[in-house]
Design a binder for these strands. Structure first.
Lengths: 163, 163
DNA sequence: CGCTTGCTTAGAGTGCACTCAAGGTCAGTA
DNA sequence: TACTGACCTTGAGTGCACTCTAAGCAAGCG
């Protein structure tokens, strides 16, 4: 039960939203089955059930600058946009692949700073991609060992049952 | 990210050594370059440089029951055997693939308890193998996103330079 | 009106996996 | 003999990523 246990599947549900990414059209239908956007965006509890992250974590992400510019209702409650969900999906992927929060915060800063940071963003992601590739190799290496050992135990058990 | 960042490359150095699984002959020349086994095993600092783990960590592994039965010199210093290095290599792999230390300790207990724990050992490793497989899938999912974004930044930069 | 539910904040607490500190023993060398 | 350096122990400290607490505000309902 390390960091990965809560909401792995839920986060991948969000990742579908991230494919859409940036330009979200704000002009959806207004009355029927009022989509969250008609009320100004998703509430925090909607985002919780959508992503599997806790409300605490969502607020904490905002506090540390990882989830900036979430808009508010007239009573100060958070209203998440589709773009916010897309960003959360990316953050979820980076998190699940072991990027430190500090690096994600740095990336978020770069995004806020505009297009002149493309080079650094590319560099940051490229570095992370290398880490991910290496980690995949380690995992596959381990998979081979696990296969071997599991087969070994299975063999030994079959042999002992036959006696 | 948790757990993965320190000493990743160094541990893979161990796995190379364990791949060899050198059956060291104890009857080597006594004076010249005495092999560690001739002195009763590897010292902790030799294991440190071999594995990339810190001496602190090696002692801590022993304290928590993850690295049992390390023999000692007549002055009480640790002497690691080849088998210990092999075990350490496995532990390194499990650790790099995110198995909680508690589970590794449990596995170590089962190994100590003997052959009647084969079923539970197999179960434990099988469960971990599933986690590893799922994690690989997540990593590859993320890799696709990273490729897409990196290419996007590269394109944008090429375009802006052409202007 | 009171109650519940759901949200707000800043700051403190938790769990994991180390990582270090303090004080000590022992072998080898000047 | 004095010193150096590698090793020993127990217990405390660190960094990360959450996770929870406490106190309070606002809306909806019987």
């Amino acid at each position: 039960m390390t960091t990965v246990h809560t909401a792995a599947s839920a986060v991948s549900a969000v990742s579908a939203a991230s494919a859409a990414e940036e330009k979200v059209d704000t002009c959806a239908s207004e009355a029927a089955h009022p989509p969250p956007v008609a009320r100004g965006g998703y509430t925090i509890s909607e985002v919780v059930s959508h992503t599997g992250l806790s409300a605490h974590t969502l607020r904490w992400y905002e506090r540390i600058g990882l989830m900036p510019n979430v808009s508010r209702s007239h009573t100060g409650q958070r209203r998440y946009s589709e773009a916010d969900l897309g960003w959360l999906s990316l953050v979820g992927k980076l998190r699940l692949t072991g990027m430190p929060v500090a690096d994600m915060v740095r990336y978020a800063e770069l995004v806020r700073e505009g297009e002149h940071t493309f080079a650094e963003r590319q560099h940051l992601l490229t570095r992370h991609r290398e880490n991910v590739r290496q980690h995949i190799a380690e995992l596959q290496d381990t998979l081979a060992v696990l296969d071997f050992k599991i087969e070994h135990y299975a063999d030994a058990r079959r042999a002992s049952e036959r006696v």
